[in-house]
């Protein structure tokens, strides 16, 4: 039954305008980026920058909108004799898979066209793709938490903004305000707590750029070079938390 659900939802999603839009968006953007910067190391860095910004946004918006949009479908399925958890899992998996597929295929096609198969790209993909389930789970959490559609989408946009900019702004303010105190370690820790910052730093480390400019946390960040998949595990951990939260809300919901 679970697989049947996933199959229908995935089928529905993959032919939706959203997924096609995401696919074409990345195809075009990556093509332009790689066309201009033919150097592998730098190209990956700029692909990373674009992805770090857009992937969370798309995943959040798509999952929240999908949950609101298919409210009738969800309520209908719930009248059938099947577990709520199955429905929730199927929604989560099909949303994540569809975005992952769209992103991976488009980026792979462009990348393959310019550089062929390459381990750095696989590394890069594993890191970036791990963000999708995280933000899908956050989007679903928002959608089931807030009844009103507009406010729900507002909340998810706010969260995106918080992850991408507000959090850094807060830390930047902290670094400036407490610059007379030894705050290297707490600051580094707080920075690494944000999955987007963590990924950004690991791309910089991977591109060898951080060695040039960063003096703080260098020994720690060297680990990111060795254990390059750590950020993915970290995203997975957050995904589990938001998934559990979302499921709690979904289970207790009167529908």
């Amino acid at each position: 039954m679970l697989f049947k659900l996933i199959k229908y939802e995935l089928y529905d999603l993959l032919k939706s305008r959203w997924i096609v839009g995401i696919f074409i968006f990345y195809l075009l953007v990556f093509y332009i980026l790689l066309e201009f910067g033919r150097e592998l190391r730098k190209s990956l860095l700029s692909l990373g920058n674009v992805s770090l910004l857009t992937i969370p946004l798309f995943s959040l918006l798509l999952s929240a909108l999908y949950a609101y949009h298919n409210r009738n479908f969800i309520e209908f399925v719930l009248t059938q004799p099947l577990k709520r958890s199955h429905l929730f899992v199927s929604l989560f998996l099909s949303l994540s898979l569809s975005v992952m597929l769209a992103y991976f295929i488009s980026s792979f096609l462009v990348f393959y066209y310019f550089f062929g198969v390459n381990f750095s790209f696989i590394k890069f993909s594993i890191l970036i793709l791990s963000l999708i389930p995280l933000f899908v789970s956050i989007g679903m959490f928002c959608a089931f938490l807030v009844e009103d559609r507009l406010r729900g989408i507002g909340l998810s946009l706010l969260l995106w903004f918080a992850f991408c900019i507000l959090y850094d702004t807060f830390l930047l303010y902290m670094a400036v305000a407490f610059s007379d105190y030894p705050i290297e370690k707490p600051l580094l820790l707080l920075t690494l707590l944000n999955p987007i910052d963590l990924l950004r730093l690991s791309f910089l480390v991977d591109a060898g750029l951080y060695e040039f400019i960063g003096s703080i946390g260098r020994p720690l960040l060297v680990y990111l070079k060795k254990w390059w998949f750590l950020p993915s595990l970290c995203s997975l951990f957050y995904t589990l938390i938001f998934y559990a939260l979302g499921f709690r809300v979904f289970k207790g919901k009167d529908m």
């Binding site: 860095l45 770090l52 850094d168 930047l172 600051l187 910052d197 910089l204 750029l209 951080y210 400019i213």
Partner: peptide, 10 residues
């Protein structure tokens, strides 16, 4: 210390 935020959107 701000080198931690190098290349961030902010």
């Amino acid at each position: 210390l701000l080198s931690l935020f190098y290349d961030s959107l902010l």
